[in-house]
Design a protein around this nucleic acid. Sequence first.
DNA 1: ATGGCCAATATGATTGGA
Length: 263
Amino acid sequence: MRIATWNVNSIRQRMDSLLAWLAERKPDIVCLQEIKCVDEAFPREPLEALGYNVAVHGQKTFNGVALLSKLPFDEMAPGLMGDDGDAQARFLEVLVSTKTGVLRVVSLYLPNGNPAPGEKYDYKLKWMDRLIAFSHERLNLEEPFVLAGDYNIIPAAADVRRPDAWTKDALFLPQTQEKFRTLINLGLTDAVRAISDDPGLYSFWDYQAGSWPKNDGIRIDHLLLSPQATDRLIDAGIDRHVRSWDKPSDHVPVYVDLAIEAR
DNA sequence: ATGGCCAATATGATTGGA
């Protein structure tokens, strides 16, 4: 079972790249972020033609998450618990059935939080508290569970080419990293870091200032695994070559391979 | 010269991203 996450920065602008990458990487489940469209505008047909079931939680103009799955969805639930007044489409949870039982997957788009301090940073921290509460509940189920998405968090200095340039940024502030560790310490495993200690594993390069040709990147897209998923961890990686394609997203896909058979 | 963007919006300037 291959599960991937990709912030596409507009699904409608990225369909050619998405189709090319799906053909190349052949993921079973894909978590998408920043689709930037309402549910009705999501281009489902070409994806369904490839055998993917499609779940969408979109909104107009900004944000928006989706899930593609070769396995049918037994359940799907949009929105993160803890604030019924939160109208931003940043969270989608699904349940699928595998040969060995259920598999729970979340596609999330954690708030950026800049500028910090400020209202946006407060929203980010509160959103993280809600994510921690949610994860605590789900981990009690003792299921294979993959929490995937754009976290807008640089976990450590090894995850950024130029740490000095990010010291006051909401993605890299100590308070952000501390809360991320609180999440991890519930019992989740960062799939990429479980496979490799290499510095220079980045998932985002800004469009500006020649960040890509200078390899001025950061690692902010993560797949966090429950213990039951970590037991089955085979491999994880980042498809950085996708950043050099025409009309790229500023993020590239990150994937994990788990020893779970579809059916 | 010296890599200074990209996407959406009833658009031609503004907002948000990170």
